[in-house]
C-alpha cells in the first residue's frame, strides 16, 4: 500500500463559544490520491484544512504528515514546504509587489538561490499559462488571473500534494474551465475542497462528504435538473 501523505485521526475543534465544528474527524490521503471533499458552507471544511496545515491547533486528535506525527510548530514548518496550499481568497495569498516576486517567494523560503528561484517561477507561470506576467502587479489582475498566479506560487515550490480550498470561489465560468484544464493536466496528489460537485468530479477521482463535523464516503448521483438560459430563444447546444 502506498505511503500516507496526510493522516488526520479523531480530530475535534470548536471555535471559542460555539458548538464543535469538527468532532471525531478522520481523513487519509495516500500518495497519488486525488480526493474531493464536498460539503455545504460552514461544514468545517476550511477549519479542517487549517488544522492539517498547522494554522489551527485541534482540541483533540493527531495530525500526521508524510508519516510523521506533528507534535509542534517545527514539524509543520518542514511539512508545509511539501504541501501546496491554495487559499480561498487570492488576496490573502498574494502579497508581493510583482507576480514574479510572489511566485518566487516559496522557492526562496525553501533556500534556493535567486537564479534557480527565478527559473522555478518562470516554469510555474508557464504551467498555468501566464508566461509574461512576471512584472505585473498581483493586485491589479482579474479574479481568475489572481487565482492562477496563486496556484503558480505553490506549484513553484514543487509540492508533493496540492490542497485547494474552494478554488472556484468568485471565478467566471471561463476561469473555472481554465482551472479544470490545468488541474487535469497536473498529475499530482490532491485534496480539493469545494461545494461544487461538478468541479470536484472533473478534478478528483474519489469523493468524500463532510457532515456534522465528520467525513463520510460521498455519493455522486446523476439526476435531471431544470435550468434557465439567459437567451433561451437563441438555438444552442448542450455539452453533457
Amino acid at each position: 500500500m502506498s505511503r500516507a501523505i496526510i493522516d488526520l485521526h479523531d480530530i475535534a475543534y470548536a471555535f471559542p463559544g460555539r458548538a464543535a465544528t469538527l468532532d471525531g474527524l478522520d481523513f487519509h490521503l495516500h500518495e497519488g490520491g486525488k480526493v474531493g471533499l464536498f460539503g455545504p458552507n460552514g461544514a468545517g471544511k476550511t477549519t479542517m484544512l487549517h488544522i492539517l496545515m498547522g494554522l489551527l491547533r485541534p482540541d483533540r486528535g493527531t495530525v500526521s504528515l508524510f508519516g510523521k506525527t506533528m507534535a509542534d510548530g517545527k514539524g509543520f514548518d518542514e511539512a508545509r514546504l511539501k504541501i501546496g496550499f491554495l487559499f480561498q481568497h487570492s488576496d490573502d495569498q498574494l502579497f508581493c509587489p510583482t507576480v514574479l516576486d510572489d511566485v518566487a517567494f516559496g522557492p526562496l523560503n525553501q533556500g534556493l538561490p535567486p537564479d534557480q528561484a527565478r527559473d522555478r517561477a518562470a516554469e510555474a507561470l508557464a504551467a498555468v499559462g501566464l508566461s509574461g506576467f512576471e512584472d505585473r502587479v498581483p493586485y491589479r489582475l482579474s479574479g481568475g488571473e489572481k487565482k492562477l498566479v496563486a496556484l503558480a506560487t505553490i506549484l513553484s515550490m514543487r509540492p508533493e500534494v496540492l490542497v485547494l480550498d474552494e478554488p472556484t470561489t468568485g471565478l467566471s465560468p471561463e476561469a473555472k474551465d481554465r482551472l479544470v484544464e490545468i488541474l487535469t493536466n497536473l498529475d499530482m496528489a490532491r485534496l480539493v475542497v469545494s461545494h461544487e460537485p461538478d468541479f470536484l468530479s472533473a478534478t478528483t477521482d474519489t469523493l468524500l462528504a463532510m457532515r456534522d463535523g465528520r467525513i463520510y464516503p460521498g455519493k455522486l448521483k446523476a439526476h435531471s435538473h431544470v435550468h434557465v438560459h439567459e437567451e433561451g430563444d437563441v438555438p444552442h447546444e448542450h455539452e453533457h
Binding site: R80, H89, D92, N109
Partner: peptide, 11 residues
C-alpha cells in the same frame, strides 16, 4: 490570514 498563507509557503 495573510500571515497564515505566508507560513504555508515556508515563511
Amino acid at each position: 490570514r495573510v500571515h497564515g498563507a505566508m507560513r504555508c509557503r515556508g515563511f
